[in-house]
């Protein structure tokens, strides 16, 4: 447990000292959402209708783009090898890494999302649901994306293989997440969608680390 916490602390310290790398996903998120109304010059009504999908797509893309560096540095400097050879399970390494990555890249998104939601005229009733759907969905995107990253870590050319691998799994998350906010904006209850998201969330965060650990073991053995 101590090692697990030390690893999380290390990642947070490194992100803090990384001088702004962690802000990339936040900036991308903000750009997509701010540029959309300008490019489309839509009416307030139209904006509030597309807001749930727009915010969710921006969050999904921002998360997906930030995943590339998840294990690359540890792989290249030999740290990953040390963990693979140690008495500690790669599963706890994977969990710690995915969790810190989520805290660093997705939590700022979740904090700032309500602000963007207001700028898109999303009804205030839906904002609470927006936050809950992002809280359930972004860890899912991170953990499932982590599997794809772990599989492509050892490859020399990263290319577009990663999005191709994870997109099929991202789509259900996007559908339920955006739908939850959509129905909440119309005044209906979003519990159906949120419960399904919650179920996927539990499945994802418990099972993904096993797949990640195995893929990392393969990458390291090359």
């Amino acid at each position: 447990m101590n090692t697990f916490l030390t690893l999380i602390k290390r990642d947070l310290v490194l992100a803090y000292r990384g001088r702004g790398e962690a802000f990339n996903s936040l900036i991308f998120f903000g750009l997509v959402i701010l540029l959309f109304p300008i490019g489309i010059s839509a009416s307030e009504k139209l904006l509030s209708e597309i807001a749930p999908g727009l915010i969710w797509i921006a969050a999904l893309l921002a998360t997906m783009l930030s995943l590339d560096n998840l294990f690359k540095e540890d792989f290249q400097d030999g740290t990953l090898e040390q963990w693979a050879v140690s008495q500690h399970s790669l599963i706890s390494f994977a969990w710690a890494r995915l969790f810190s990555h989520w805290v660093i890249t997705s939590v700022p998104l979740i904090i700032i999302a309500p602000l963007f939601a207001l700028s898109l005229s999303l009804p205030t009733d839906a904002i609470g649901v927006l936050i809950v759907s992002l809280l359930l969905g972004t860890p899912l995107l991170t953990f499932i994306g982590g599997i794809g990253v772990a599989l492509t870590t050892g490859l020399k050319k990263s290319s577009m293989l990663l999005p191709l691998l994870v997109l099929p799994f991202y789509i259900p998350v996007l559908i339920f997440g955006a739908s939850a906010v959509d129905v909440a904006a119309d005044g209906w209850s979003a519990s159906g969608q949120l419960y399904i998201l919650a179920g996927l969330f539990v499945l994802g965060i418990t099972l993904a680390p096993f797949a990640v650990a195995t893929s990392l073991k393969v990458s390291v053995s090359q």
Binding site: R10, V13, L14, R17, G18, Q76, D77, G78, T79, E81, Q82
Partner: peptide, 10 residues
């Protein structure tokens, strides 16, 4: 191994 398992920012 060949590499040094060190973090430059620490």
């Amino acid at each position: 191994g060949h590499q040094n398992p060190l973090k430059e920012d620490q």
